[in-house]
Design a protein around this nucleic acid. Structure first.
Lengths: 110, 110
DNA sequence: ACTATAGTCAAATAACCGTTGTACTAATCA
DNA sequence: TGATTAGTACAACGGTTATTTGACTATAGT
């Protein structure tokens, strides 16, 4: 049996860099709530799930974080009773250079 | 009554540049078939709907072209019994600079 | 131990989306 | 005129997804 996604399990599922799929990532980004999450994460390095000022139930937010994490857009880390998330900038840039900047409205620097 | 999307009507609906919405565009791109259409269009300036080598029924292709067009990703033009489509590069670049290059895997030149 | 907090899981619902089938319009060619 | 071709319109099916409700785990503070 898989032990993925159980709260007591410290090893939260994250896809490896090589497994990142463009369509999955685009689908993850193609939602207003998730796009806002990504924008907030882009502005502030690491944020606890509850610390976003987004109007949504915590279950719904939990769902959106999961979609983003499963797609490889964000990484999550448990600390105490908080789950901190951050953008997987390096991985995204390595696999799809310029994509994140394009989505965030920041033109690639080179 | 709206006369949009009728075959006899030469004025096919295209959203204006100012109305392009990032989430809609991302959603339009977040599909394997549509992404392939965009890649083909990126390689060859203007292509008739039937001239893509994509494995899909014509109804399905028609649907995908409509999604892309409604989102503002492509523009379509009727000529004879063909409908030629092209990428709205300039509009996309103006509203979301670097996005298309990021999706196509072509790093922005500047 | 009790309480509060952060977040997930699971089930249910509703809406959406991709795909297919049938029918249709318009244009080209014989 | 008739036949073919390119593509759309519409309705239907099946699968996916966003959202909500309720219950649960685990941590932290008292």
């Amino acid at each position: 049996m898989s032990a993925a996604h159980t709260p007591s399990d410290q090893t939260i599922f994250h896809p490896r860099r090589a497994d990142l799929d463009l369509v999955e990532i685009l689908r993850a980004l193609a939602d207003p709530t998730r796009l806002e999450i990504v924008r907030i994460l882009a502005a502030s390095e690491e944020v606890a799930c509850g610390a976003f000022g987004i109007e949504a139930t915590k279950q719904n937010l939990s769902h959106h974080f999961r979609v983003l994490r499963d797609a490889g857009v964000i990484a999550s880390r448990d600390e105490g009773r908080n789950r901190y998330s951050s953008l997987r900038r390096a991985d995204l840039e390595a696999r799809f250079p310029g994509l994140l900047d394009g989505v965030l409205g920041k033109r690639s620097a080179r």
